[in-house]
Design a protein around this nucleic acid. Structure first.
Length: 341
DNA sequence: AATGCGGGGTC
DNA sequence: GACCCAGCATT
């Protein structure tokens, strides 16, 4: 199989089917960098509104470097994996005022930028013929070649394949075409996301399709046991102010703010409970209302300031629910989009 | 090589 | 409820 066949089939398909995404309209290094960090473990549809807001709020590296970390975290809230935002911010401060790296090797040294992201920025923004492998490419590779390995072995094989096949003249388009194929055609197969092999430009080359193994590949790694736990948080009010604690280092969402939380139920009225998931943990969060145990460790925030505070999603939800019933109680105007969204 | 790290979408 | 998503840093 000549590689030119593979190349032209996929690139022709990409030219005709590429999605019109904001970071593709203007693939400047900063925009590609930000988009790639946001897209780590996060779907394109989720990223779109965040990316647009981000580019307005932090239009370049210098603007991001000037921003306060809490401001950055607040802009990121809802995207998850907040370490990405912290490292992006830290990297912007290290790079501000200097020329950005122009190749994959230079980008690889930037904090928060790994092998995938350095390859993406270098190939897309600078046209360097360097490969990349993400979940999409791994799946396309496994099916196309019929590789039934899993885990680290599969990953290494996919990288080796990507190194050999990256397009020398259109590396950015080639890499994006592989990911685009995985994201829109070579779908995982679970739960209504069936692969659409009849639309695939590579179907005649695909070992998995020929052997009827599409749904078996890529071979899944064993998954982690679920851990269940319960927590209690306390909504304490002083007039229209709410007592928040900053989450200590070493815990989930370190540095963000939440209602004071403990493992044991407080002696206070329970309003209700909500569930959330953090990786393989399933947590039930019981929400209570009552006086704070010790007021001095808390930061008191007015209701109208709450939306600008960086809070993890479950606490944000608890706050919105509490405030919305509060508003109803006091017959205030309907809940605005900033509260309801 | 394994683990921790989120939140949303989908069925 | 389970799986997936343009991964990375740490140990």
């Amino acid at each position: 199989m000549p590689s030119g066949d593979l190349h032209s089939k996929l690139l022709d398909w990409y030219d005709a089917n590429r999605r019109d995404l904001p970071w593709r309209q203007d693939p400047s290094p900063y925009r590609v960098w930000v988009s790639e960090i946001m897209l780590q473990q996060t779907q394109v549809a989720t990223v779109l509104p965040y990316f647009q807001r981000w580019m307005t709020q932090f239009p370049d590296v210098e603007a991001l470097a000037r921003a306060d970390e809490q401001e950055v975290l607040a802009a990121w809230q809802g995207l998850g994996y907040y370490r990405r935002a912290k490292m992006l911010h830290q990297a912007a401060r290290e790079l501000a005022g200097k020329p950005l790296p122009t190749n994959a090797e230079g980008w690889r040294k930037v904090s928060g930028v790994g092998r995938y992201t350095s390859g993406a920025i270098a190939s897309i923004a600078f046209g360097e013929p360097t490969p990349l492998v993400d979940g999409n490419v791994e799946r396309v590779y496994a099916r196309l070649t019929g590789d039934a390995s899993s885990g680290a072995k599969l990953s290494k094989a996919a990288w080796d394949w990507a190194c050999q096949t990256v397009h020398p003249l259109r590396p950015g388009d080639w890499n994006q075409a592989l990911m685009e194929l995985g994201a829109t055609v070579c779908l995982p197969g679970q739960k209504g996301r069936a692969p659409r092999c009849e639309e695939c430009p590579l179907q005649e080359l695909c070992v998995a399709k020929r052997e009827g193994k599409t749904l078996e590949l890529p071979t899944a790694s064993p998954q982690k046991a679920v851990v269940r736990q319960e927590e209690h948080c306390l909504i304490a009010r002083r007039k229209d102010e709410y007592g928040l604690e900053q989450i200590p280092a070493g815990k989930w969402w370190a540095g963000m703010w939440r209602f004071p939380t403990q493992a044991q139920p407080p002696k206070a009225e329970k309003l209700g409970s909500l569930r959330y998931t953090v990786t393989h943990h399933r947590v039930v969060l019981h929400v209570h209302e009552g006086p704070a145990r010790s007021e001095k460790d808390l930061r008191w925030v007015r209701k109208d300031e709450l939306e600008a505070i960086a809070m993890p999603a479950p606490y944000r939800k608890a706050a919105r629910r509490y405030i919305s019933s509060d508003l109803n109680l006091f017959s205030e105007p309907p809940i605005g989009p900033e509260i309801n969204s």
